[in-house]
Design a protein around this nucleic acid. Structure first.
Length: 358
DNA sequence: GATACGTGGCC
DNA sequence: TGGCCAAGTAT
């Protein structure tokens, strides 16, 4: 055998597949069973750029609270955003809701069963449309995520850097994908990448492809995939304001629907680039008050690092004017607070969350 | 094609 | 401990 065969991988998958809450077993799939497309879609959206470990609790929470796509479509957006809080990439949650509404109200509650039909829905791109088509509907789509890129780049020792080499790799995936059991094949490639063909220290001795892998035969597998160099992260500075009234309520705001942390809840802050190092930002407080310093936090986003000076005041009488909405400090868990905002609050009110981070 | 978009875990 | 990484999509 000189080239990789799908049957080799499928035999490995039969014995070494991961058991995950949204999956059915390969034995059941062979008997003709299919998983719930709603579960597969939900898991795939949550898993975009996110680890299985982080997704599990959120998946259980979402399908427990909204067992069908219709339930999710009819849920208030604020509830969906609050349930997603902490998982990151919040455009996924906004699109999840839009997609559920499209399926429930424009497709009769039934997911499209083709890659093209799925691709037209909000939040579903090249990867997710192929993955849902293959896994939920057993379509022979070429499924390529970061795991598959790593496996393919090593199997064929592809020197061209990502992302430019994606079309070349996708052609290899399409060539390998079988018409029999394409859903299991897609999941097998991802399981292989996640458990054997790992970024560092791959377990090549256990790999079903170790007799045909060009990188293993001629090079260091962990050198692949070759990637374009990354850009440096700039630092942005700002200040956050923690105001508590005499009733023990915290002042919050809702962010605009688009962009960074779009649609999520925040504490009042200055903007995050104008302040020069050394200034306090107090002149940008939401209202005049006896603001006290309460430390600082740092938070790393995908493309910049944010350093926030924290100021607090209270207990105070509610100031005149509309500055947002006031929520009891004991009820913050029901809010759509992203992690960076929980850090800012915890810096000023250490008891605000049972699991404060940062 | 380049850029915006979160978070937590690992070494 | 700071950089890297994890089942990408939208614009």
């Amino acid at each position: 055998m000189t080239v990789p065969q799908s049957a080799t991988l499928l035999a490995w998958y039969d014995r070494h597949h991961r058991e995950l809450p949204w999956r059915i077993s390969p034995a059941a799939a062979k008997r003709g069973a299919r998983p719930d497309p709603y579960f597969i879609w939900m898991s795939e959206v949550m898993l975009q750029q996110t680890t299985v470990a982080a997704v599990k609790a959120y998946f259980a929470k979402f399908v427990g609270r909204w067992p069908t796509v219709k339930d999710l479509a009819e849920a208030p957006s604020e509830d969906v955003m609050a349930a997603w809080a902490g998982l990151g990439y919040y455009a996924r949650a906004r699109n999840l809701k839009k997609c559920a509404e499209a399926v429930a109200f424009a497709h009769g509650g039934v997911f499209p069963d083709t890659e093209e039909g799925l691709r037209a829905l909000p939040g579903i791109g090249d990867y997710t449309s192929a993955a849902v088509a293959a896994i939920a509907f057993n379509r022979p789509s070429a499924v390529m995520d970061g795991n598959v890129e790593r496996v393919i780049s090593r199997l064929f020792a592809i020197e061209a850097p990502l992302p430019g080499s994606k079309p070349q790799m996708k052609a290899k995936v399409a060539e390998l994908t079988p018409t029999d059991r394409p859903g299991d094949f897609a999941q097998a490639m991802m399981d292989l990448g996640a458990t054997i063909c790992t970024p560092k220290r791959p377990a090549c001795a256990l790999c079903p492809f170790n007799e045909t892998c060009v990188a293993l035969a001629t090079d260091e597998p962990q050198r692949f995939p070759v990637k374009a160099p990354k850009k440096a992260k700039p630092v942005r500075l700002g200040a956050a304001f923690i105001a508590v009234d005499r009733a023990g309520r915290l002042l919050l705001r809702k962010r605009v629907e688009s962009g960074l942390l779009g649609g999520m809840t925040e504490v009042p802050t200055t903007d995050w680039s104008s302040r020069q190092d050394g200034e306090t930002g107090l002149d940008s407080a939401p209202f005049p008050a006896d603001w006290q310093t309460a430390g600082a936090i740092s938070h790393v986003f995908t493309h910049f690092e944010l350093r926030l000076s924290i100021f607090r005041v209270g207990p105070i009488d509610e100031p005149p004017g509309n500055h947002g909405f006031w929520v009891p400090v004991t009820e913050l868990d029901g809010q759509a607070l992203p992690t960076v905002m929980k850090k800012a609050i915890a810096a000023a009110i250490p008891t605000a969350f049972s699991t404060a981070k940062g």
